[in-house]
Design a protein around this nucleic acid. Structure first.
Ligand SMILES: [Mn+2]
Ligand SMILES: [Mn+2]
Ligand SMILES: [Mn+2]
Ligand SMILES: [Mn+2]
Lengths: 220, 220
DNA sequence: ATATATTTTTAGATTTATCTAAAATTTAGA
DNA sequence: TCTAAATTTTAGATAAATCTAAAAATATAT
């Protein structure tokens, strides 16, 4: 089904909220993500329900149905593949790719996205470590934990970020932290909760719990 | 200036008409290209005039001013670079690229298009032989004539197509004719005006004047 | 030159996505 | 449990891009 940019953005917002909480998306939360009024959201979710993309119950919230979920997954596939393209082929930084991918993800062409996938070598993860759905909507899951859950003296490999904000990504750049960085927990300070780590068997850095919560690592 | 898709499509239409005829674009002609009503066109050209992109005189037609011309040229740059990308990187055929480029050309990011340009090696021409404006809006012109103007026993190199329709491009595919094909005029039939050519020093083919009018060649 | 045809503009309506303000419903606190 | 706060929906308005039908201007043909 051909949808407008707006409709697609609503589907993505509802998908994200469902992913985060597992519960139906509330009108207010959708409005928050899309920076619009609750009244507009009510109008639009009714329309999406009409079109058979979501299940909507007055005052109860909105959830994607099968078709809505498929469409949202396709959008995420497109978004993340474009991010890989921007980063690997066009040499963008990881803090720059999201905004442009927000536009590119709405381009309509199944062949385009499948050929892009092939061109990029069927990548499994995007520049932020998020999994890329394949042509059939299937993800490759990965065992990962927040860096804040890694214990003292244990080692881990950075595989993703939870936050995607520019400021967080720039902060990581300044710390020399990136996807595939090796990390060892040297100390966790009892008093101020700062975590001291060694990065790539090299520099030592102190990071806040906020940063550690937003970094995903694999045990190594 | 940030423009809507619709506004950008009007600018392109006006640009094309000016390019074709040299005269200001008529309301009806714009409506024809954009498949819309004359009344809508009047509304929109007034709005574009308000925004300082076109000069519009009631009943006299519309022409791009400096700013409108710059914006239209940027759109053409984006369109043609995306066509090159689709063809060279993603292996699309030359009859498939236009429709997708019509969508991609509206993505807003100066860095995106300049990096794409670099990635593609600063191509001078698109898959149909049309020149690609550089970052400053400058084209590389090329001396070319329609194949129909090539004389008997003369040789030429195919450098572009005038028509961009799918059916014409597919017809050329069937004849094995493509950009960079070498052509020799073997005979021009007096009775039915069919032109007999040799392609790549190899096969002989008879083509109609209609086809010959729509193929650009360089004398060799 | 005058009538006719064509083109273009205007007037008024429609659709889509948005808004604000007020009403209805649900949730949470005392 | 009752009341107050928060959330959500409804009602009505607005802005952008479109439409149709009618009026106005221009072009064409006898
Ligand atoms: Mn992103
Ligand atoms: Mn991402
Ligand atoms: Mn094209
Ligand atoms: Mn082209």
């Amino acid at each position: 089904m051909k949808l407008t940019f707006t409709e697609e953005n609503y589907l993505k917002a509802i998908y994200k909220l469902l992913e985060q909480s597992g519960k139906p998306a509330s009108t207010n939360d959708i409005a928050g993500i899309l920076q619009t009024s609750a009244a507009s959201v009510t109008d639009m979710v009714k329309k999406l329900a009409e079109k058979g993309l979501v299940d909507y119950e007055k005052y109860k919230g909105t959830r994607l149905n099968e078709e809505g979920k498929n469409h949202a997954t396709l959008l995420i596939r497109k978004h993340r593949l474009w991010e890989v393209f921007l980063m690997h082929s066009l040499k963008f930084r990881w803090d720059e790719v999201h905004d442009i991918a927000e536009q590119l993800e709405h381009v309509q062409s199944e062949k385009l996205i499948d050929e892009l996938d092939r061109f990029l070598g069927f990548p499994k993860y995007d520049p932020h470590g998020d999994p890329i759905p394949d042509k059939n909507g299937r993800y490759t899951f990965r065992h990962q934990i927040p860096l804040s859950q890694l214990e003292k003296n244990k080692k881990g490999l950075v595989v993703g970020v939870k936050e995607h904000s520019r400021s967080f990504l720039n902060h990581l750049d300044n710390l020399n932290l990136k996807i595939s960085s090796r990390i060892e927990i040297l100390d966790i300070n009892e008093y101020d909760d700062l975590i001291e780590i060694r990065i790539d068997d090299n520099q030592r850095e102190k990071i806040s719990r906020k940063v550690a919560d937003n970094l995903f690592v694999q045990n190594t």
